[in-house]
């Protein structure tokens, strides 16, 4: 038996918004620790991972691990039927269930909606991502700043270079109409309201497709801050963490390299 109840549907709605433009379908792996998924986009250059830890839920029960193959567009359609303050309960049989049940209940518990989502068999490749990668540069910034930088730059062109030196990050773009760049310095005072922190072991300069960096802005409502981790020649890791260590959405994006 799998049963998980979120106090407010907002949490899962936001998480799904952050991943549904990148992946069409994925296995939601349920274990005693929580709910997680990882999936690549069609060209296999971007990996999205998501975890909702058991403590994110008001009720969480998973008697034995199960994997629910879900079409992201279908689950999003069903969750549109939940008001943001409604609670969401997901129930599935752990013995080869062919559907999962979604129950939405309003705050006064006098309106209860039931939906059944058909599950799918999905063959997915699972990549092993090292947990404690030793990154050359890590930058943390308010997620609203992330949105502004990459929504602005990706309008100019799709080739975006991130260069991080001591205390400064430079984001630049080259496009058909011209080019642009933006420098972001580490904020001075620790009590700054919207801090930017930059940790550099070695300066790094890498290029990524703006289309993806802009798509990741869909995760901005999840988190006040975002962390970008870079190592020369390796995929960029971007993390949006849910409040109270309830979980996270992470993206891993292959760099553009000279052929």
């Amino acid at each position: 038996m799998f049963e998980a109840k979120l106090t407010e549907s907002t949490t899962i709605k936001r998480v799904l918004d952050a991943i549904k433009d990148l992946i069409q379908q994925a296995n939601f792996d349920c274990s005693a620790d929580g709910l997680s998924l990882q999936a690549m986009d069609t060209p296999h250059v971007c990996l999205t991972t998501m975890t909702l830890r058991s403590q994110a839920f008001e009720v969480y029960r998973c008697d034995r691990p199960l994997s629910m193959g879900i079409n992201l567009s279908s689950i999003s359609k069903i969750l549109k039927c939940a008001a943001s303050k409604d609670s969401v309960k997901i129930v599935a049989d752990d013995e080869g269930a062919d559907c999962a049940e979604f129950i939405f209940e309003n705050e006064s518990a006098d309106r209860i909606a039931h939906f059944e989502l058909k599950l799918m068999d999905i063959d997915s490749e699972h990549l092993s991502i090292p947990e404690d990668s030793d990154y050359q540069a890590i930058i943390s910034m308010p997620s609203a700043e992330y949105r502004r930088i990459f929504s602005d730059l990706s309008i100019i062109g799709d080739t975006i270079t991130i260069e991080i030196n001591k205390n400064t990050a430079c984001f630049s773009v080259e496009g058909d109409i011209g080019n642009g760049s933006l420098n972001l310095a580490q904020t001075d005072s620790a009590d700054e309201k919207n801090p930017v922190t930059i940790n550099v072991k070695e300066p790094v300069k890498m290029t990524f497709p703006g289309k993806y960096l802009n798509t990741f802005t869909k995760a901005v409502p999840i988190s006040e801050f975002v962390t970008l981790c870079l190592t020369d020649g390796n995929p960029l890791a971007i993390e949006f963490s849910l409040p109270d260590e309830a979980g996270f959405v992470r993206y891993f994006l292959a760099p553009k390299i000279d052929q």
């Binding site: 990996l47 490749e125 080739t159 995929p235 891993f252 553009k256 390299i257 000279d258």
Partner: peptide
Amino acid sequence: RQCQRILSTYYTLE
């Protein structure tokens, strides 16, 4: 010309 390598060139498949 720039290109992207697929992620399985960076990470191992489980």
